[in-house]
Design a protein around this nucleic acid. Structure first.
Lengths: 256, 256
DNA sequence: GGACGTGGTTCATTATTTGAACCGTTATTT
DNA sequence: AAATAACGGTTCAAATAATGAACCACGTCC
């Protein structure tokens, strides 16, 4: 791995649960030498990608990241555009709704709305979702370029639960259904007891760029709930797609 | 400069005005060799920090940045907390209001609200503000740690206009006034014809972590406007500080 | 056709990164 | 209170990774 890759993987050790880490901790988790880790942290700090708490000497993600992310968001206001509709969907379904954007070979969770009830599915911002074992991933694949689909189905398909689909044919079938319905269903593919539906958000070229998903405890979910949530998710996704693409109807051709 | 520094300075070439850049362009602007530039871009792309448009082959900032920025924001919801108050202040003043966060040796503009009128001051998200020549910078210094102040006043103080204060004594005086009033005034320190006021947003330790500022064309600004905007900015900054620190009154001691 | 500007690649040379061992400090443990 | 361990941070010869001039292949404008 190159040096920049190491630096970035250092950044990726910071999570919602572990937002502040010490030098030794970072070295341990990354597997890099302490000296190396420190040199990378100094370089990152020098550009505002990490900050160090002067009192505790712990490191955390820096303001430079916010700056660049905001430049990106200003040009391509995905989250900004989608958040109100995510919120509406969360209110309408009274379940956890999360918004994801495709990046690299996974979906990145960029926004979450949790319902105000104790028993709910918990999703963290920043969480990375595999494509084959989540509702979001399946509907993404359903509306993705062939290359992306092949790349995913060609790779190793980890089974997270006994329900996870790992056969390319089964996944393709699931995708076809999602394409027809407009939304995907994933029954405990990533975690036991959780059932999710998701719809694709499309770019101007008609391919998926992200997803909006509703995740709920399976115990209290009826088939009717699934259908209702699915349609609501599709409506939200369509509205987000339209707002992003300036009502470019051509873009929605594939979803129609 | 180390390799990671080069990679990051490549990222910093992307701005609001130039959100997509080609390989040769990036090499030219950065001063790195084309091969080097490309290798860095590949490394960054591999971690989702930049994306390449498959059609145009242009590079742009990637989703990985949004992910990390959101992890940071989730732990420390500065922008999220402040935006409503920035908006209110923009409506109340009918002028441009911008929110900045300290990073490295400068203030980073992380949010802007422009008034709905033709003649207005324009501020871009991601813009970097020097400390000695902006209202935001001066009020930041007024509520900053001594080390930060010394580091700023000890460095070179560029004169952007004929009005820019470059004498450490003059700047210190301006800071003292700001500390007393609660807000700073900067009269054409960065650009001719623009007058700004700013108030500091304080962290739990009582030191500034960011600012909120109102910028307006000097031609239509009276002393009464200044005073009114200043007090409104202070009120907004205090409210943001309180919401961030959970009504920790101790934190506001220095501003009282 | 030819001159230029793209994006992208190669490989010997060169400069940077690496990591075991080190220091000083700060908790914990005995 | 002494001993131990863990922490953040530093050093420098050895190993490794980054570098860049020259190189394609492609498109485009005279």
């Amino acid at each position: 791995m190159g040096t920049v890759g190491k630096a970035i993987s250092l950044l990726e050790l910071f999570t919602l649960d572990q937002p502040e880490l010490g030098l030794s901790d970072l070295a341990r988790r990354s597997g890099f030498d302490k000296a190396t880790t420190r040199r990378l942290l100094v370089a990152l700090t020098g550009h505002g990608f990490v900050e160090q708490d002067t009192a505790t000497r712990l490191y955390r993600l820096g303001a430079g990241l916010s700056r660049l992310a905001r430049i990106r968001e200003a040009r391509f206001p995905f989250v900004q555009t989608a958040v109100p509709l995510v919120r509406d969907l969360a209110v309408a379904t009274a379940e956890t709704v999360h918004l994801s954007e495709f990046g690299l070979d996974r979906l990145v969770t960029v926004h979450v709305e949790h319902p105000a009830r104790a028993n709910r599915v918990n999703v963290d911002i920043g969480q990375l979702l595999p494509l084959h074992s989540t509702a979001s991933g399946l509907v993404y694949l359903a509306f993705a370029r062939d290359e992306a689909v092949n790349s995913c189905l060609g790779g190793s398909l980890e089974a997270f639960t006994t329900h996870t689909l790992t056969e390319p044919a089964a996944i393709a079938h699931c995708m076809a259904e999602a394409r027809e319905r407009g939304y995907s269903i994933c029954d405990q593919g990533l975690e036991e007891g959780v059932i999710s539906v998701a719809a694709a958000i499309l770019a101007a070229d008609g391919f998926a760029l992200g997803t909006i998903a509703v995740a709920a405890p399976k115990a209290r979910t009826t088939p009717a709930d699934i259908a209702q949530r699915g349609l609501a998710a599709v409506a939200a996704a369509r509205e987000i797609s339209m707002r992003l693409n300036g009502d470019n109807l051509q873009a929605l051709r594939r979803q129609a």
